[in-house]
Design a protein around this nucleic acid. Structure first.
Length: 501
RNA sequence: UCCCCAGUAGCUCAGUCGGCAGAGCAGGUGGCUGUUAACCACCGUGUCCGUGGUUCGAGUCCGCGCUGGGGAGCCA
């Protein structure tokens, strides 16, 4: 049997055998070996690779879903999409095919496996097309398939969130999301950062950032936690437990040991936020850097955003073109501008001064000590500077305890990266590394220090200057794709009252 | 949570001054065609979001509720 196998295949087989022996206990691991059935040896292609071919390949096999069918005299055109790229593969199904009657009944959404020869297409719109000599119908979609060959509203597609990745726009968005997720890891890896997986379940009662989801194994119909201090004594962890709102505090511990670290994971916030920029479950990128001050923090944030945008523009050209063309006509130019220009850096005080002098008619008055409202941020990014702006050194009273108090005693080394159209995409700070000041700020802001003993403790042993920030991953996808609602850049969005999928 | 807007066919929407419920697309049938959001002809489709009210009469006006969208707050 093995006589006819090539050297390469023999090597591959022996490698597979070794691997199989190693993995013998892990039964779920599948070892891929060259198949013996010559019919199955025919290469199965992803459409992305097929369309990128320089020369026509031999007989090939493609599996995917029918996007549309157009009949002609004696044959049908099938547009097949397998999710590997935005483009469809045009398949020519001749009426001489076995089961052509069934092929003629193929509907949008049906699944097929097609075999045949790839050749140059005489028609406009595509370089290659597949002349099918076999069309295997895997399943015909009934005619109540909700996706049609036309544009649907984002609101409607949210009601069929399980099917929306089958559309051009959502398929493209989620391929871009994947590429950017990978790019996040690539960026930090190239810089020598260590990836830390911080806990999802947390015992800290308040991490500072808003309302929390609690996680419990107790039967909610059987106990009433309100006002009962020991209500969770019999629970899994013996205390009240929440879903994390941020990996920052954990990440800091690792920055103080491994140097530069980052986390990239989900965060959960139980705020009743009903906006296009908020979700109850979202993904956040949180670097923490040892021996790094606020300026270094801002440098890293700006570099990361530029890196991610440029990676998307290089790697997701085809998918991005859909957004440039149909979603936001100014998107391409805006992304190019972000790459070209330095992010403008302005202190909170300067920003307030500028806003006061602007003469603009704001709904909310602005003066030193007040929060910058969305309208103020928007004025800075969209009207005044027309580009990304980093505002830093905010009043201490409006920022959390862990941000480092500046020498003036009234501001903290905080920074927000504001993006045109998106608003705040990054929030970060230099962390308070001085034990006494940290403790006094926690007491001043009324935070119970007891559950944070470990965080405070880290400031006792070789405490150093360090900084970090949080990048809202969905907001990044919104920035890159021009999609204006956060519900449309996450697979199955969680917002108040909505968790159907 | 607050403010504003919307809810009519499977989808996207029109519906005038309160007077018989409409179009395009999708779907079905037939035709035509190397087509490409294919094209042409014909066919069917309604809890007008729900509820209460005003009126001879309500898709249309009013109250309440639900759902969705936009904005604000909270934030990433």
């Amino acid at each position: 049997m093995h006589v006819f196998l090539s050297r390469k295949k023999i090597l591959y087989r022996s490698f597979a055998m070794v691997l199989q022996r190693i993995c013998s206990r892990a039964k779920s691991i599948k070892i891929f070996r060259p198949l013996s059935n010559p019919e199955l040896i025919m290469k199965q292609w992803k459409i992305k690779n097929l369309l990128a071919c320089e020369n026509a390949a031999g007989r090939i096999r493609v599996m995917g879903w029918v996007r549309t069918r157009r009949d002609s005299r004696g044959f049908s055109f099938l547009e097949i999409n397998d999710g590997s790229c935005l483009a469809n593969l045009q398949v020519i199904a001749d009426d001489g095919l076995d089961g052509y009657e069934q092929v003629k009944k193929l509907t949008t959404g049906s699944a097929v496996a097609v075999e045949g020869a790839l050749g140059q297409s005489p028609g406009k719109g595509q370089k290659w097309e597949l002349a099918a000599d076999r069309v295997e119908i895997l399943q015909t979609a009934p005619n109540d398939y909700p996706l049609q060959k036309k544009r649907h509203s984002d609101e409607f597609l949210r009601t069929i969130a399980h099917l929306r990745p089958r559309t051009n726009k959502y398929g493209a968005a989620f391929r871009i999301r994947s590429a950017l997720a990978f790019a996040v890891h690539a960026f930090f890896r190239e810089k020598g950062f260590v990836c830390i997986h911080t806990p999802i379940l947390t015992g800290s009662d308040c991490e500072g950032a808003g309302a929390l989801f609690s996680a419990t194994t107790l039967d909610p119909t059987n106990f009433s936690p309100a006002g009962n201090k020991d209500a969770f004594a019999g629970d899994f962890f013996g205390q009240k437990v929440n879903l994390t709102v941020s990996g920052q505090l954990s990440a800091e511990m690792f920055a103080l040991s491994l140097g530069n670290v980052y986390t990239f994971g989900p965060a959960f916030r139980a705020e009743n936020s009903n906006t296009r920029r908020h979700a109850a479950e979202f993904w956040m990128v949180e670097p923490e850097m040892a021996f790094c001050d606020l300026a270094g923090d801002m440098d890293n944030a700006e570099e990361l955003i530029k890196y991610l945008i440029s990676r998307a523009m290089i790697e997701c050209k085809e998918d991005l073109s859909l957004f440039f063309k149909y979603v936001d006509k100014d998107l391409e130019k805006r992304l190019e501008t972000i790459l070209e220009k330095d992010f403008l850096r302005i202190s909170y005080e300067e920003a307030v001064c500028l806003l006061e002098k602007s003469g603009a008619d704001f709904k909310y008055d602005i003066s030193w000590g007040k929060e910058l409202q969305t309208e103020h941020e928007r004025f800075l990014t969209d009207t005044h500077f027309k580009g990304p702006v980093i505002v830093y050194d905010y009043p201490a009273d409006i920022k959390p305890f862990y941000m480092r108090v500046n020498d003036d005693g009234r501001t903290v080394a905080a920074m927000d990266v504001l993006m045109p159209g998106i608003g705040e995409i990054i929030g970060g700070s230099q962390r308070e590394e001085r034990l006494d000041i940290l403790e006094s700020r926690m007491k001043k802001t009324g935070i119970d220090t007891a559950p944070y003993w470990w965080y405070i403790d880290s400031r006792r042993f070789g405490s150093i200057v360090h900084s970090g920030y949080g990048l809202g991953f969905e907001r990044l996808i919104m920035l890159v794709t021009g999609i204006s609602n956060i519900r449309d850049v996450i697979a199955f969005p969680r917002t108040p009252g909505n968790i159907a999928f």
